[in-house]
Design a protein around this nucleic acid. Structure first.
Lengths: 83, 83
DNA sequence: CACGGTTATGTTCTAAATCGCATAAAATAG
DNA sequence: CTATTTTATGCGATTTAGAACATAACCGTG
């Protein structure tokens, strides 16, 4: 299950989605990745100014990784993300 | 050609790599994505505090996208990245 | 070597991110 | 509905990113 993330809010949505899949609370994720629950709340809601290192830390804690490659045509998943 | 990026420096390396593939200079990339050459220099060299929105802007300008999904086993590309 | 283009470094300033704590709001369980 | 957990918000304090400009260090080519 791999998802496209072209914007901070899509990144946030995916982090939230995968976090819930693991049955983890924001507080738990925060503790495990050395940050605060409030920050995770902001990041999940699409915080534009989140640091890339914070994102990487969260992904690592959730056993996720990001890949970078050429753009594909926009998928339906992107559209849903807007609404 | 899709690459794993688990850390800010891997993200930076990939941005640099794809930028060069497009024959673009840091200055050109900076202008097109509304930021400064100095910042791109820092980001490409693994700047920890880069904003996720900056990264997304750069990827968009380079016609790239990021995807997020479960970790795969570490590839040789990761190892090289360390050195 | 000298030159033009590219990339890295340094400084000051402003805006903003994160912290840390409190607490409100919302969702879930009992 | 009530209690508990989870998530969102607000605020002061601290830290840091990024702008803007200057300039140094590189790099390839003539």
């Amino acid at each position: 299950m791999i998802q496209i993330a072209r914007s901070p809010s899509q990144v946030g949505n995916l982090i939230q989605k995968f976090r819930k899949l693991k049955g983890m609370s924001q507080t738990e994720l925060a503790e495990r990745s050395g940050m605060r629950q409030e920050l995770i709340s902001k990041i999940e809601s699409g915080h534009n100014g989140a640091k890339i290192s914070s994102i990487c830390d969260l992904l690592a804690t959730l056993d996720l990784e990001m890949t970078i490659g050429p753009r594909t045509k926009s998928s339906s998943a992107d559209i849903e993300d807007i609404f």
